[in-house]
Design a protein around this nucleic acid. Structure first.
Length: 465
RNA sequence: GGCGACGUGGCCAAGCUGGCAAGGCAAGGGUCUGCAAAACCCUCAUCACGGGUCCGAAUCCCGUCGUCGCCUCCA
């Protein structure tokens, strides 16, 4: 019964141990905010939300930091292109992303730092690397001395010498080595910049994460996460920066989610084959995307297309069917049926945890939930009362909640409930008189309002769609 | 060219420190029903291909083919 986590660093599932007892420090790379976020960004946020929720379920206190990179070349270019202030542009995308996270039922990160608000930390970090001999300044730019950091390449399992041949001829021959990367870039006219010991400039791409992680979580953290396209060079460089400075291992576990596949290719800004979160949420509830993510391993590529979206929607309805109320006039299920229900309730609870303990196998965990749904529905069909169904339904709602699915929303009370009860009751009276035309009309019109009426031998029930 | 991942029924997908192939969707048949919907029951795979190891492999090893990712900005 121990949690095991796949670590990109070792390429193995390892037992999960935290630096501090029962506390998890987790840093997840957020988006660079220069355009509308797409569903791939949402996938990553969902994956780490699910991981976080399960860790909390397991009794860990999770300190979760997700950053916004709000200064970089693309933001500046884009701002110039649309004639906007870069900060304003970034702020707009940050606000929008925050809203998306909420719609997707993603728990807000404990802390959401942004690069522009941490400039002193970043400058201090760079200066310390210079002081330690891991970085050098040339004409207002500062570069990281890659070869000075012995373990460079340990995350992406690359060899510095083999890498060299693959590097394109460096345009910038002021660098000591083509492998060296920028920690600080001097400002060109018109660009946003900050004063530093090396003149006006802005941070390079990787340094902000190292600096913010250290500022908000300390020198050593438990989990560092992001999409697997960040393994190299971003995370490799973060390791180089952070470990050169602190002299300690940066993160114990490096976790990476697979890429979302759109028509056989990775969905990405550069390929231009993207579906924005905004567009997706226009047509589908957020839980549909979560269901898609849950239904496959987080490290594997996720197939994204209309058919799969539809399947996820249906799966969600299936899960939802488990929490429907007892049949009208239910008089209790036979003992054998109730025993099976109790047994499955227990089996699901255990199976769920076993799966999630195995590197967050959410697809397996979901399978257990569906097994429980089937047995609950069997019991209901056998005449189980609400009281008899309740414990198993409670498990279903609780565990779905651990995955971040909002099953209970269908049970929330609406102001209109009493009126619907009345309409359904009137309709029942009509049905007794075989007034089919009118009763069908009531059913159809209620459906248009999002109310599903279901008839059975002993009466009718209804629920929100 | 270098490094890595993956290839399971019509679709999505779990299982991969070896021991009778989860689950969801779709499809077909049935029960229930005025109709509809829902629910329930039944049916539906030997795991890309070829070798090897083993009493035994979807799970381990080698090879082939295919798909994808990183090596440049990228969740």
């Amino acid at each position: 019964m121990t949690l095991r986590v796949y670590n990109t660093l070792t390429r193995e599932k390892e037992p999960f141990h935290t630096i501090e007892e029962k506390k998890v420090r987790m840093y997840v790379c957020g988006p660079t905010v220069y355009a509308n976020a797409h569903v791939g960004h949402a996938m990553s946020a969902l994956v780490f939300d699910i991981i976080r929720r399960y860790l909390q379920y397991r009794g860990y206190e999770v300190r979760h930091v997700m950053n916004y990179t709000d200064v970089d070349d693309k933001i500046i270019q884009r701002a110039a292109a649309v004639g906007k202030d870069p900060f304003e542009l970034a702020q707009g995308y940050i606000d929008q992303f925050d809203e998306h996270l909420q719609d997707l039922n993603i728990l807000p990160a404990t802390c959401k730092p942004r690069a522009t608000a941490e400039m002193q930390n970043i400058i201090h970090f760079v200066q310390s690397l210079i002081d330690k001999g891991f970085a050098y300044e040339v004409d207002g730019d500062v570069y990281y001395r890659v070869r000075k950091f012995g373990p460079y390449g340990k995350l992406s399992h690359r060899n510095v010498d083999e890498m060299r041949s693959g590097v394109r001829i460096s345009v910038d021959d002021r660098k000591e080595d083509p492998l060296d990367f920028a920690l600080w870039k001097s400002a060109k006219p018109g660009e946003p910049s900050w004063q530093s010991p090396w003149g006006a400039g802005r941070p390079g791409w990787h340094i902000e994460c190292s600096a913010m992680s250290m500022a908000h979580l300390g020198e050593q953290i438990d989990i560092h996460g992001g999409g697997n396209d960040l393994v190299f060079p971003h995370h490799e460089n973060e390791i180089a920066q952070s470990e050169a400075l602190s002299g300690h291992p940066f993160a114990t576990y490096w976790m990476h989610n697979g890429m979302l596949q759109f028509s056989g290719e990775k969905m990405s800004k550069s390929l231009g084959n993207l579906v924005t979160i905004e567009d997706f949420l226009k047509d589908h509830p957020g839980d549909v995307l979560r269901m898609m993510v849950l239904n496959s391993g987080y490290r594997n590529p996720l197939t994204f297309n209309d058919e799969v979206i539809d399947q996820a929607q249906k799966a969600l309805e299936r899960l939802q069917s488990g929490i429907k109320t007892a049949q009208p006039g239910a008089e209790g299920a036979p003992a054998a049926s109730l025993e099976m229900l109790a047994a499955q309730n227990k089996a699901t609870q255990e199976g769920f945890e076993t799966c999630m303990d195995d590197d967050f196998n959410s697809a397996g965990a979901l399978g257990n939930l569906f097994d429980l749904v089937r047995v609950i529905n069997q019991a209901r069909a056998d005449g189980a009362t609400d009281e008899q169904l309740q414990p198993a339904q409670q498990t279903l709602v609780n565990l779905s909640g651990v995955l971040g699915l909002r099953l209970q929303s269908a049970q929330q009370e609406h102001a209109a409930d009493a009126f619907i009860d009345m309409l359904v009751s009137l309709r029942s009276a009509l049905r007794t008189k075989k007034e089919w035309a009118l009763s069908d009309r009531i059913r159809d019109e209620l459906l248009e309002q999002g109310v599903v009426v279901e008839d059975s031998a002993k009466g009718s029930t209804w629920h929100w769609k």
